[in-house]
Design a protein around this nucleic acid. Sequence first.
RNA 1: CGGGGCGUGGCGCAGCCUGGCUAGCGCGCUUGACUGGGGGUCAAGAGGUCGCAGGUUCAAAUCCUGUCGCCCCGACCA
Length: 587
Amino acid sequence: MRWSQTLIPTMKETPEGAEIPSHVLMLRAGLVGQLMAGAYTYLPLGLRALRKAEQIVREEMDQAGAIELLMPALTPINLWQRTGRVEAFGNVLIQFQVRRQNRQVHLALGPTHEEVVTDVVARYVSSYRQLPITLYQIQTKFRNEERPRFGVLRTSEFLMKDAYSFDTSLDGLNASYDKMYHAYCRIFDRCGLDYLAVEAESGPIGGDASHEFMVLAENGEDSVVHCAGCGYAANLERADVGRRDKAPPPSAVTASAPALTKVDTPKAGSIEAVSKLLGCRSSEMIKTLIYSADDKPVAVLIRGDHEANEGKIRRALGAAKVELASPETIEKATGAPVGFAGPVGLKIPVWADWEIASIAAAVVGANAADAHYTGAVRGRDYEVGQFADLRNAGDGDPCPRCREPLALRHAIEVGHVFKLGTKYSEALSARFLDEKEQLHPAIMGCYGIGVNRIIAALIETRHDENGILWPMSLAPYEVLLAPLNVNQQDVMDTANRLYDELTQAGVEVLMDDRDQRPGVKFKDADLIGIPLRVVVGGRSLKDGQLEIKWRWKETAENIPLDGAAIALADMVQSERNLAHATTESPE
RNA sequence: CGGGGCGUGGCGCAGCCUGGCUAGCGCGCUUGACUGGGGGUCAAGAGGUCGCAGGUUCAAAUCCUGUCGCCCCGACCA
């Protein structure tokens, strides 16, 4: 492609509103343009990168035995009603009504396709002989994000690869899951992403096992903990920080324990306010959170500097639904307004995080407005019904496997695999007949990749002050051919010849044939980040030389003009192979 | 949904507090000349409902009210 004939609107300045590197660079390099919050046009250069990512995903899915189909984005609302997900998605589901002749038709744009694919299987699969099967598609998904942000990382419309496996047994599901897991490793390897497969919450979608594929990046929305010692990695919400010995800790009463003292803490209802007022550390305080677990109030004690984890609390209590209690419930349970709850004298069940056990004397709410206790000692002033791991992991917490300190990192979620079970196959009657003529719901797994996020995460992690550093596998073009002076006949003859020869050799070439000063071309070349830059300039041309430079190298080198096309094609080819080589030994 | 910020030629910004003549600057764009290896020089140009609506005023980009849009933080997020 010749630059002058396509549309690559590079920008010298950072557009207002773009902050994170991927967003800034995608706009400046002319990869995308914004239409509105959360919706972007993929301009020619950006589209090429996106298509490459898509193709890698497709190849590895096919390689793993998954079968591609394409389902409609437009779906009937009743499909979502049957699985209860109209409520589960709430405002995220984009739904609307259209008139068709004399009736209203209620539709929704698919935010994901468990329902639709299960319906497909329900219609066409009826025998164990047709299973297992994994179906996938690469398609635009629609979610009404409350707050789209970070450029292309969180948008209300995005390209997703979603795959769904259908098995006849749990062993089968596990095998399908493993195949997808390893395909994901190959995909992200080929894309040149540094990723971590972390243990994750499976979320409201249900199921019992789940991994997220995370790319560590400062601007990532997600938090993961990572152990440098043993490689353990987990979603912050999932990471286990419980004690290994589950015996109840001994009482904290000692002879030297201070007396329980009630102090006035007017208007100080938060940990921060109280610690400031009383001059104590937040780790010496206990947060008493009143939860409503299946509509029954429960007190949960968490160390002041820790964060409660609702998923863990729900599991520990064995409750179906857990949410922070309403102010009325809290007042009824504690006799005090929100912010002054404490375990002393509480009549409702009291659960505590393990870390509470090692606080000798704590500052706690007094269950009275504007008052706290200091010197609250467990076993003397209050009792804990049961201990459990109820909090989020934090920076420096011991690794659950090797006890080395965990590091808290931000990350971008690029993929998610999870085991679904039979939730959808039961709701939508995707059943098969086994060899004994018994009817069973298919056992499902589902596997998603945010294709746009592959691009954004790559740029987020591979750029320098001048622009993007594409790996060969995702680069919109493999070679940037830059004749420095388009008005010089010998330069243009050489460039045109090289362009034809390289293109013929199957190399993807972008030729910067604009009548621009060399400086402009070099700056734009760095900005759009094509891996191999080939400069045709009067200076080296005189010596029968071409200047070539890899985007990620400091310096350029010269190669002889004779046979240059073949040499360049070879270089490109070996760089392509390099990207493939890593796929041979997935993590 | 809570908190904060910003809307002025295609892009980035100044002007607004303290209302006043023809709304400026840089980049980009057009034409011409020179130039030609890291965002060039000179000259001449085109391009603006100052987000929108209402109000105050002799007079509004500037003050007031409302509204729309965009960005950031938080909550939410299969």
